[in-house]
Design a protein around this nucleic acid. Structure first.
Lengths: 152, 152
DNA sequence: TGACCCATGTCAGGATTCTGACATACATTC
DNA sequence: GAATGTATGTCAGAATCCTGACATGGGTCA
């Protein structure tokens, strides 16, 4: 009610609110990551590698929500800075498994502290049940959106 | 438990989930908007103008989560296509109030139908109480994130 | 009235990302 | 063993967006 055929009320739209929250999160993360010379994609890539060493370029791209090409240039930069290593030749197939260097692991630790503070600030004021509820709802939304994308 | 000082478990991170959901939503909206030759920012701008006619460039930028500069080039494009109109001179100050043309209103109606279908798909499987719960939680997150950003 | 501060619209430059395309490697099928 | 389909890494070009900067208009305060 209140939003007939004349438009979608942005004030009450969950889609708009989702974008708003995501935008605020990105901005907050960028703020705390900037002193470390890192960006959100930077951090995402490193964090993914810490949890699942040996990930390929394509897998990292999917995990960080960017294209293979973007992740490729990022990996080259990280390699140049000595934060990750990739074998010159693929052990099997074309996949070049990427791994963190000690230096990469070190800067990731700093970034993790910063990011965790942001996440805690975001969750401030929410009870434990509200957090798990939000978790389930967000998962449901993502699943439903992905399910429909295959029809085209 | 399970996510001590060695990192943030992306599988259980609400921040990561938020980004994932937002990314899926954007992809789904782009899919249904592409046949109309529109992008998400396009649509956001038109929808904002429909609800609050006379919005300025800067206000539209904030509402669509882009910079003034990006919104400026978008408005020029929309003006060239005859979807919006802006006075040649500012009635007061430097602000140029923007308004939808009948043609802009027409294409917005089509876009609204498409976007509404995406939003309904996203909300499928969620009860009414879950939706309002998600609404409150997302609002709380955004507010908390914004509150801390002013300290720098 | 004048100084100061903030917000706006706009221009130029650079950085980032994406779209499109290609060759290669593995798995599956016949 | 050959053909096909899928997935990967990479290159080139274009589109997009942002950072930095400038001049202008309005409000506040002395």
């Amino acid at each position: 009610m209140g939003q007939e055929a004349d438009g979608i009320d942005l004030e009450t739209s969950l889609g708009y609110l989702l974008k708003e929250a995501s935008s605020a999160l990105r901005a907050a993360m960028d703020d705390v990551l900037r002193p470390l010379g890192m960006t959100v994609t930077h951090y995402s890539c490193l964090e993914l590698l810490a949890q699942r060493p040996g990930l390929s370029n394509s897998e990292l791209a999917r995990g960080a929500f960017v294209t293979r090409q973007s992740m490729n240039v990022l990996l080259h930069a990280l390699e140049r800075e000595g934060h990750v290593t990739r074998p010159a030749e693929a052990p099997v197939g074309k996949v070049l498994p990427t791994r963190l260097t000690p230096r990469g692991r070190r800067i990731l630790e700093k970034a993790t502290v910063a990011v965790r503070s942001v996440e805690e600030r975001m969750l401030a004021g929410l009870s434990e049940t509200e957090r798990s509820e939000a978790f389930r709802v967000l998962q449901s939304m993502t699943r439903s959106l992905r399910a429909g994308g295959d029809q085209g």
